[in-house]
Amino acid sequence: MAIVSYWQALITGVLSGTLIRYFMLRRDYRQYPSYPHGVVTHLSLGFIAAFIGAIAIPALAEREFTAVTFLALAATQFREVRDMERMMLQKLDQTWLVPRGPDFIEGMARVFEARNYLVMLTSLLVGGAVFWGNVFLGVAAALILLLAIRKLMSGKIVAQIAHVREGEVRFEGANLYVENIHFMNLGTEYVKDVYRQKGLGVIIEPFNDDERATLSNNGQRMAIAHNAAALLGIYKDVDTAEFTPILRRDLETGRVGLVIIPIEKDLYYLLEAVKKTPVLESALSTPLKTSVGRKASD
């Protein structure tokens, strides 16, 4: 009897864990994880994580408490996954025309690590529900966990922290501005004409002081530029560094401006691309949660 329920717990745990890992794998314009081999790698790691999580239930039931320490071993392994992902993404970042930036990469690497822990937790809980309850309880637990993970692990996007609108691109002499935000000094009429004809400007106005601090982070700004360039295409090659999209800050108000020359000159979708950029975990700042920050803000 005990052996049968061990198997039940193990199989349901591993299955639900691996499935959840599959649902958490996002294959989209971010081109990562790459298909098919990147996906296989992460599904396999998810399977291993699920197995480790699920095997803990029989171990607990047999009162083999020392066996549970291998969970710690697994944690070390998955930390290495994070290092591996970070190193690889950093290397690959050099080949992008508009790089993601270190903060975006750190966020991605962290997500890869964290998702394996979530898989371990899922298979542990589902396995436990099957072992001490029944299969239906296990399925219910898996569904609840899936929904909870979806809800809790989805981060904010730029649209939730700032108002995003169009800004007028203009030159004052050789200096490029979007509204009153100075971007850079550019020489030659040719380069200026390209900006005048094809350039688009965006103004990102943070709602409050927390968000102002978040948007001031350079990594966050690089992520916005990367997202916009990845979605709309970028009018740039390795030898035309002057067309690199950049974001600059209005020192007075903390507003951030973006100037970009997209291949698709479509303002509406540029604004959408900026709005849908994830707010990076490492850029998130909350000075308003401290009394000093609150008092200083008024």
């Binding site: 002499g173 850079m184 550019l186 020489g187 390795v238 030898d239 560094a241």
Partner: peptide, 13 residues
């Protein structure tokens, strides 16, 4: 020169 060196031209006006 900008294309050759992958640099950016700035105008001191």
């Amino acid at each position: 020169l900008a294309r050759i060196t992958e640099g950016v031209i700035h105008d001191l006006e």
